[in-house]
């Protein structure tokens, strides 16, 4: 699952002309560490939903990679 999330994150980053990353960790912050802004987070949500059929922002904000993974594993 982490590999798929990394791929999605890199798709969103490259769509905005931002540098891609090689790995993700649970404690990485989406905004501060990865450099996502609100539009990127919207695209991230849509791409994760298309793959895992879950809207990660539906019930409140998500700030870290770990929080995304927890939401997806709860499904």
């Amino acid at each position: 699952m982490e590999k798929q999330i990394l791929e999605i994150i890199n798709t969103v980053l490259s769509n905005r002309g931002k540098a891609t990353i090689n790995e993700i960790h649970s404690n990485m912050k989406l905004r501060e560490d990865i450099g996502f802004d609100s539009l990127d987070l919207a695209e991230l949500t849509v791409r994760i939903e298309a793959m895992f059929n879950i809207d990660i922002f539906e019930d409140g904000n998500v700030n870290t990679i770990g929080e995304i993974l927890t939401k997806l594993s709860k499904k």
């Binding site: 769509n15 919207a42 849509v46 298309a50």
Partner: peptide, 8 residues
């Protein structure tokens, strides 16, 4: 808009 984001 979500659809447009998904398909760029």
């Amino acid at each position: 808009i979500r659809n447009m984001l998904l398909f760029s």
